[in-house]
Design a protein around this nucleic acid. Structure first.
Lengths: 340, 340
DNA sequence: CTGAAAGCGCTTACAG
DNA sequence: CTGAAAGCGCTTACAG
């Protein structure tokens, strides 16, 4: 690598081509009304100097930047899936993507992190932003699409159908013959946590199984939050025969706690998660879970944002995407050990 | 969400607090020489209006922005690992991270994509950049650290020890008793492809096994490139008993081609990959491969870049990181089928 | 302790 | 067809 002196600016090109920066700008942006000769001269100077317009200066001056932003609190493996979907939707659209992560706010639940990130980008750098799993409601001067919004959010958003997903998970357990099914809930401010609990309750109600409130633990989606809850559920003499956790991270923690307590999965206890993160397939036994396509969430969020920015969006502004149940080794009919 | 009118600028704050923008700037940046009263007034106006300085305007004006950039051609699952490592190294450092992806250049091998991205960011938005798997050598007015550079690159870089990794893979096969070991190479401009081939040759040489050039296929790291090469190797009457592919993507393609041709893995053919992507563990059978910690590559690259920017870097500028062999079901002694 | 002014690298009316 | 000038939202010498 050559660590070259100063970056080449538009003034450098103008000087080299013997024209004004206004003319260079016109050539760079393909505006009409520049003579063929001048265009050729400017092009050659650009080529020779290796000029590329500064994203920052362009963004500051222009109202439309053709850059969309994405702000996230963390980079989990699902983030990569979201990003793949976003880029797929953006490819060939003329919109570039900027992802911004503040190293101090990273991985914290710090109040309003998403609002701070948004403020720094919107209006100048980006034409609009995707916000992944925000802490609260967001405000912005440019369009925003939220992936996994907070409960009651009115912002344009894309969410997995968490209620139906949770219902299918619990129906799977009911179908296997389970009746005492524990539940470990997620962070209650999130729409997704709420809906997953709703799905749990509905599935039980539909099967005529009364909800036992002592079988419900309140976690926050963090694996660690599930450990004491799982321990409490498994220490009871009348422990549940199955546990449904509102996230794979928490479900995997349940698997670990069960192992520590000598409770065998799935023989003594069936476990179901939600998300289908890669680790769930590696788990021993493989974790039965509800798959939500993060790729699809990213794809649809980007598609919506793009159209919102250009003013072409026609559809509903709160999208619900389907989920699917993935059955692996962590679930089996209750009492398997006794029968064996 | 409230889609609020215009973003709050420093002028708005200045007006509300009855001071000049210069004073607001001083307060925002914690400069000395502002009276306690004024500070309080400005703070309260900032609070009231929800002001946050524009990343773009700040970057354009300042020489140091405290933002590091990362440019990438693609978002694979390994990208998330790299990003996790980068953020870990950056947390608490005061440096934020911007990832830039051009939707047109995304996932293409287009000549010089990384140079274009770099030019757009450096000098204004970022103090330095990490470049992931570039197409060629890069030049920049600010420090750059390359993850997986091209062959012969003199840029500061972080690379897995590909030669030793490849050697260990081939030694594993030799240890199982294989002597006819095919190799599918990667994109030859990349240092990593070159080193992996070198490791293959060295391991064979050390064991006194002559290299058979007809057993070497030239791919480009893309899974698709491996299909015809695998077919050619497996169609021969004297086909190899094992194939080592320079990437997991290509190795998984070998698995697929073998299945199509009715060649059973590992009984008729052992297969080893390189990278240890998540999909390799899911494969049937699980793929034996060489693990390179992308997390670690990201972490070290960010650590180096940070110090390069602040001028504190002391160590060598080209780092080599260790790899480790992960043995799964795709390798077994040759002739297993015959003996069974 | 505070403000007016210049300028970072661009784009865009406005003149000519 | 082309250029001089203003201005995007900030920061930083320079005066006072």
């Amino acid at each position: 690598m050559a660590e070259v002196g100063a970056p080449v600016t538009m003034s450098d090109v103008a000087r080299a081509a013997g024209v004004s920066t206004a003319t260079v700008s016109r050539v760079v942006n393909g505006r009409y009304g520049v003579s063929a000769d001048t265009v050729a001269q400017v092009r050659s100077a650009i080529e020779r100097l290796g000029y590329e317009s500064s994203l920052v200066a362009t963004s500051l001056r222009r109202s439309r930047t053709n850059v969309l932003g994405l702000v996230t609190r963390t980079f989990q493996s699902y983030t990569a899936e979201v990003l793949k979907g976003v880029m797929k939707a953006l490819s060939g659209s003329g919109f570039d993507l900027i992802i911004y992560a503040n190293s101090d706010l990273y991985e914290t639940y710090a109040e309003g992190w998403e609002q701070r990130h948004l403020n720094r980008l919107s209006g100048t750098l980006t034409d609009g932003c995707i916000v992944v799993t925000p802490w609260g409601e967001v405000r912005s001067s440019t369009p925003v699409v939220v992936i996994d919004p907070v409960r009651g959010s009115t912002a344009p958003s894309v969410t997995a159908d968490n209620r139906v997903g949770a219902t299918s998970a619990v129906e799977h357990l009911l179908g296997l013959g389970h009746r005492r099914i524990g539940f470990i809930a997620g962070r209650s401010s999130l729409e997704s946590a709420w809906s997953r609990e709703e799905g749990y309750r509905e599935a039980l109600a539909a099967a005529g199984v009364p909800v036992d409130p002592t079988l419900i633990g309140r976690g926050d989606f963090n694996p660690e939050s599930a450990a004491p809850l799982a321990r409490a559920l498994l220490d009871r003499p009348d422990r549940p025969t199955a546990i449904f956790a509102a996230s794979d991270g928490m479900a995997l923690k349940v698997l670990q706690v069960a192992k520590e307590l000598g409770v065998s999965v799935p023989d003594d206890l069936s476990v179901v998660g939600f998300d289908n993160i890669p680790e769930s397939a590696f788990a021993e036994p493989g974790l039965t879970t509800v798959d939500q396509s993060m790729y699809r969430l990213g794809y649809e969020a980007a598609r919506m944002l793009k159209s919102l920015v250009t003013g072409e969006w026609e559809g509903q502004r709160q999208m619900l995407l389907p989920t699917s149940l993935v059955v692996r080794g962590s679930t089996t009919p209750p009492g398997a050990a006794a029968r064996a």
